[in-house]
Design a protein around this nucleic acid. Structure first.
Lengths: 214, 214
DNA sequence: TAGATTGTTAATCGATTAACAATC
DNA sequence: TAGATTGTTAATCGATTAACAATC
């Protein structure tokens, strides 16, 4: 209903993780400024983000962690688990499987694909691997709606095409290229090279501030 | 000199990769709208970004690719190669080594560290691995200014502390937590869970737009 | 020259921040 | 109640977009 910005979505995802940790520690309530300190924003921003999803806190006790988690879940998550396909079972792909499989309540990597026949039909970190040729069939069988592109750049576009043809509606792309996809498919890029170059740039900037050349 | 936004820095990093590909294809000039189409922005934005680094194109021929690459390099890169330490040689760490070692002209992963003694003193993807205990010594020996945190979340903060004590000025963090570092250290986070949850959210949004419930 | 593109300014847009009355 | 926090509005900030004269 309400239009919520891309950044707010990201922050809600972040808040949720801190809230889960707090709940695990036995906490029941939290104030906006506490959550802001954990997540690295301002209290006003936290309040605005929470308001955007239609949850209200109490001026005395702050936010009820359990109920806030429920609200964020209702907002961010689908009503049922969304199935994800991973394409590319190299080092990165295996790291993603190790990190995600069985860990996420509402997003599940249910199948992995690789062009290397030696990887097909093996189970890696609890996830079954298939030859890329089977993508379309498996994607329909398993109702896969999201794809992760973890193949080298030269293969990424053809993998994206396969995933789109198989009916996915969103891609998480690790390849350092721009993917061309149908308009209704959402692409989120993780560009490690860009991130490292940004770190290098801003690290030098802060160094320059501390040690002015004159 | 000129203050350039975080986003512009990211886009310049992206433009550079496309420009290198174009140069490899034998192209000598490019117009702003062509670069915008490749990078996924607008022509005006490309022109503004390029203006920000003090380079000028020609109204007739557009931008000279070779000179533009030089300008972007002078802006983004340090005068000499910046040395990087990677901490955590699991699947993710190995993927990063495979991807970066020897590939980047001005950023070089010169040492990797892991707490697992079995990995120490091995060479993985061309990079020497050391025990974490040696971080401070090696960082000084090799003039390491940047660090990549690729360890599990529970260890990430202590690794960040070690890196900061060893004098790094920037961190690329893959752990899904917020790192607390001295003010002068720049941290760039890559949050895979957040990215995947964003994809899931926006994929469902576009799905809902296409198939309205009423 | 004619004309598409550039550099630059002004207008728009959206998000963040600041301020403050309402709340328990 | 007193008072810190919340929800909400207004002000600020910055980036993007649009418009257009300058350019080769």
């Amino acid at each position: 209903m309400a239009t919520v910005s891309d950044r707010t979505i990201g922050r809600l995802s972040l808040y949720r993780r801190f809230l889960r940790d707090l709940r695990a520690d036995g906490e029941t309530h939290i104030f906006s400024h506490q959550l802001a300190a954990l997540a690295g924003g301002t209290a006003a921003q936290v309040r605005r983000d929470i308001m955007a999803i239609g949850y209200s806190g109490s001026p005395v006790r702050g936010y009820d962690i359990e109920r806030l988690l429920t609200s964020i879940g209702q907002f961010l998550d689908a009503s049922q688990t969304q199935n994800v396909a991973l394409v590319g079972v190299g080092n990165l792909g295996r790291a993603l499987l190790a990190y995600f499989v069985g860990r996420h309540p509402t997003l599940s990597i249910v199948a992995a694909f690789d062009k290397d026949p030696a990887k097909a039909n093996r189970v890696i970190h609890g996830c079954r691997c298939y030859p890329v040729d089977d993508l379309k069939v498996i994607a329909h069988e398993q109702d896969i709606r999201l794809g992760i592109v973890a193949v080298p750049a030269p293969e990424a576009q053809s993998v994206a095409n396969l995933l789109c043809q198989a009916g996915v509606r969103g891609l998480l792309n690790f390849a350092p290229i721009r993917l061309w996809v149908p308009e209704h498919v959402h692409v989120e890029d993780i560009d490690v090279t860009m991130a490292l170059e940004k770190v290098a740039y801003f690290a030098r900037q802060s160094e320059a501030e501390r040690e002015p050349s004159e």
